[in-house]
Each structure stands twice: as structure tokens, then as C-alpha cells.
């Protein structure tokens, strides 16, 4: 990862010195372990603050919405797919971007690692294969693959799909991953079983909307839950309102979600709301052969009519 960081600083410095871009969007080291903070670098000197490691799980495409500058952006596989989606949805223009692809080895799950530690974690360092966790009186070494974010563990698009240059050689992408085991398990439940499963899943939700706000797809100027004229959804902690928020948000992401995992990562109470978006992702793949953000040319299934639509009610 040190090689990535050096290369990233070098590229950012070069782009800013040559005025190829006005700003570079990357990560700087955070103030607590396993936390890097998105940052906007404006001068070549500031490029020295940039870092790259396995704690860059925030999706940087989220910071591109409706910007007017010329921007250099570091993009993992999922980020690059959300950049494509942003371009298709006219949230940014391709010409405004210099995309620096970052072939991805997967981001680590900070919540899970913290839960597995025998005390407060004071420092986390990594080498090629291991994540070394240290705290007062304990040290744990995890194999990187065992502590990947849940979405990264089943990711099949580790390499950026669109880029102007790369920070390293492309990585090997696992082909035969079972991406949807969790979704199938829920599909197999009875209606009542599903109801109870979601009840339990959302029990702790505090409607902070970190999941929505961390998501590059959720850029509506006024989200349906915030609309007050008319008010579509109650604003209290009533379970029906909480559930309505989650279901509707997921539907708004149908055919657009890249399973980047930024939503789940951001949740302060550890809710796996990705099961909703994954179900829709699975349906899009199975019914329309569609995976979001892979091409600037193809139109997403929900904004195109096809005579061979798999649902017969619509023909």
C-alpha cells in the first residue's frame, strides 16, 4: 500500500502543477484507527497529505455531484462505476474529470475488526496479506481476506472500469463468487418470516440517514423523507416509517447501485441495509443482465423499454 500512496502523491502533484485539474479528490489519514477522511487537495504541496490503504471505503463519487471544477479523482472499482453512473445521470461531465484508477485489494471492515478486538484498538497497520491490530495489552493479526468489508469479499469488479491512468497494474478479479447467498436466504423465507427478519434488521435504526448521505446515488435536492409538502413519510421512530424509508430508498437505487458498501460502512449502529439494494441488484442482473456503471453507452434497464421485458404484465 505504501507504493500506492507514493504513486498517488506523485500523480496528484503532477496534475496540480501542470494545472490539468483544479482539485484532487482523495483521502488523508484520519485521527482514529481505520479511518481515512475524504479530502480535496488544492495545491501541489498538499498532495503530500494523501494516503491509500485498506481504509478508503468511502465512495468518493459522492463528492462529485454537480461540481463545476475540473477534478482529479482516485477511483477504486466501485467508485469508478459510480462515476459512470454519475456521468450517465448528468451529475458531472466526463471532460471535467481526470480519473486515476486504483486497482483494489478490498477494504477492511472496521466495525467487525473492532468487535473482534480484546479492548480498544489503538493502532492498525497492514502489509500485503495481514492486518495487524494493536491495543492496550493485545495484538491480533488478521488475514486480510478474513476481515474484508462484506461487499468487498464478494466484489467481482475490483479494477476501475473507466480511467485516464492507473496507480498500479490491474489486479486479478475473482470470477466465480456467489454474490447473492444472503439474498437467496431471505427470498426463501415466508412472508411472515421476511416481515420479522426486516423488523429485527431495522430495530436499531435511528434514521440518521448516514446510509443515504454516504451514497453517491442519493443526490436528490430534497429526499422523499424530507419532503414536507406533501409529507410522504412520518418522521418519527415508528417502525412503519423507518421501514418505508429503507424500502423506498432501495427502490430509488434499483439498477444504479454498485454495492460499493459505503452505506453499510457509514451506519453508526451496524445495520446491513445492503440486503435491500442487493436484492434489486440481483433482480437487475437476473432479469436484464444488467450490472450498474460498467459502460457509458448502455442505458440502465429502468430508463429503457425493451420488447423482451421479462415481466409479462407489461407487454
Amino acid at each position: 500500500m505504501r507504493a500506492y500512496t507514493e504513486k498517488i502523491r506523485e500523480i496528484a502533484r503532477r496534475l496540480l502543477e501542470a494545472c490539468t485539474v483544479e482539485r484532487v479528490l482523495g483521502f488523508r489519514r484520519g485521527s482514529v484507527p481505520m479511518m481515512n477522511a475524504p479530502c480535496f487537495v488544492k495545491t501541489p504541496a498538499e498532495a503530500a497529505n494523501l494516503v491509500w490503504d485498506s481504509n478508503c471505503g468511502i465512495n468518493l463519487a459522492n463528492y462529485l455531484t454537480s461540481r463545476s471544477e475540473k477534478i482529479g479523482i482516485f477511483a477504486k472499482g466501485c467508485d469508478s462505476r459510480n462515476i459512470v453512473t454519475h456521468i450517465i445521470e448528468n451529475k458531472i461531465r466526463r471532460e471535467q474529470l481526470v480519473i486515476i484508477g486504483v486497482p483494489c485489494h478490498g477494504m477492511i471492515d472496521r466495525h467487525r475488526i473492532a468487535a473482534m478486538a480484546d479492548g480498544e484498538i489503538r493502532e492498525v497497520v497492514e502489509d500485503e496479506n495481514n492486518i495487524i491490530v494493536q491495543g492496550d495489552g493485545f495484538k491480533k493479526v488478521h488475514n486480510r481476506h478474513d476481515v474484508l468489508q462484506a461487499n468487498c469479499a464478494v466484489c467481482t469488479h475490483r479494477n476501475p472500469v473507466i480511467y485516464d491512468e492507473l496507480v498500479a497494474d490491474l489486479v486479478e478479479e475473482p470470477g466465480d463468487v456467489d454474490r447473492y447467498r444472503d439474498v437467496r436466504e431471505i427470498e426463501a423465507l415466508s412472508a411472515e418470516g421476511k416481515w420479522d427478519f426486516f423488523d429485527d434488521l431495522l430495530h436499531d435504526c435511528i434514521r440518521c440517514y448516514a446510509c443515504r448521505n454516504a451514497c453517491p446515488l442519493c443526490y436528490c435536492p430534497t429526499c422523499f423523507v424530507d419532503e414536507s409538502r406533501p409529507q410522504w413519510v412520518g418522521k418519527s421512530q415508528d417502525p412503519v416509517d423507518v421501514r418505508t424509508f429503507h424500502f423506498l430508498r432501495a427502490y430509488h437505487c434499483a439498477g444504479r447501485c454498485t454495492d460499493c458498501g459505503a452505506c453499510e460502512r457509514a451506519c453508526p449502529v451496524g445495520i446491513n441495509m445492503r440486503v435491500f439494494t442487493k436484492k434489486l441488484e440481483k433482480d437487475c442482473l437476473e432479469k436484464f443482465g444488467w450490472e450498474a456503471g460498467l459502460s457509458l453507452e448502455a442505458r440502465p434497464p429502468l430508463d429503457a423499454y425493451r420488447p423482451d421485458d421479462p415481466d409479462d404484465f407489461i407487454r
Binding site: N62, A210, P268
Partner: peptide, 16 residues
């Protein structure tokens, strides 16, 4: 501007 740049305006900080 720099302090606020990364903020996603969620309610995590205030609700917790």
C-alpha cells in the same frame, strides 16, 4: 470549507 468538505450531513454526530 476544509473542515466541512468531507461531511455528509448525516445525523450521526448529533443523534449519538
Amino acid at each position: 470549507d476544509d473542515v466541512a468538505f468531507a461531511c455528509i450531513n448525516c445525523g450521526t454526530c448529533t443523534y449519538l
